[in-house]
Amino acid sequence: MHKYANPNQFLRIANPLLPWLSGLTVLCMGMGLYLGLFASPKDYQQGETVRIMYIHVPSAWMAMFVYGSMAMAGATALIWRHPLGHMIAKASAPVGASFTMICLLTGSLWGKPMWGTWWVWDARLTSVLILFFLYIGYIALVNAFDDSARGQRTASVLVLVGAVNLPIIKFSVDWWNTLHQPASVVRMDGPAVHPSMLWPLLIMSIGFTMFYFVVLILRLRSELAATKIRNIRLGQAGE
C-alpha cells in the first residue's frame, strides 16, 4: 500500500493505463451521445428535453463523486502523511468544479422549457450551487500559498470540514425548501426512468468517470513535475 502511495510509483502504473482510459472515455461518450440523442425515445411528459438528462444527471453524480474522492484522498493523506493523496485532491478539484458547473448550466437549460424559468430555489439546485461554492473555496485555498505542498495539506483539512458539513448543509437546504415550497414547480422528480433511458445514462456516467481519471493522471503528472522543478530550484538556491 505504502509503495503505491509514492507518486512516482503511482505514475509508473497509471501512465500505461492512460491510452486505455482515453479510449474508453471516447468510446463511452460516443455511445452515450448516440444512445442519448438518437436511440432513446422522448419522454411522454418532457418531450425531447429529456435528452438533457443524459448529461445533467451524470454530471451531478460526478460532482458528488469527485468531492467524495477528494475527501477520501485528503483524509488518507492526512492520516498516513503521504503527499499523493493531497495531490489527488488538488488535481481533482478543477474537474469536480467543472462537472458541478455543467450540472448547474444544463439544469438551467432544462428548467427553462420545463418550468418556464432559468432558476428555481429548489432544494437540489441549491445544494449543488453550495457544492460549487465549496469547490471554489478549495481551489482558492489550495492556490493561496507560496509553498504549494503547504497549500495542499491545508486544503485537505478544508475538504474534510466540507465533507462533514455537506450532509448538514443538504439537510438544512431540504428543511428550508419545505418551508418555502416554490409554487411554480409542478414536478420536481425526474422522469420515471425507463430502461431505454437508463442505458445512455449509465454509459455516459462511465464515460464521465473515465474522463475524470484521464484528466486526473494528466494533472498528477503536472503536479509531480512541478514538485521536482521546485526541488531542483531549491537545491540551486542552496548551492
Binding site: 453550495i130 473555496g137 478544508l158 438544512s172
Partner: peptide, 10 residues
C-alpha cells in the same frame, strides 16, 4: 469569507 460563508448556511 469564501471558505466560511458556505459553511454558515445551516
Amino acid at each position: 469569507a469564501l471558505l466560511v460563508l458556505p459553511l454558515y448556511i445551516p
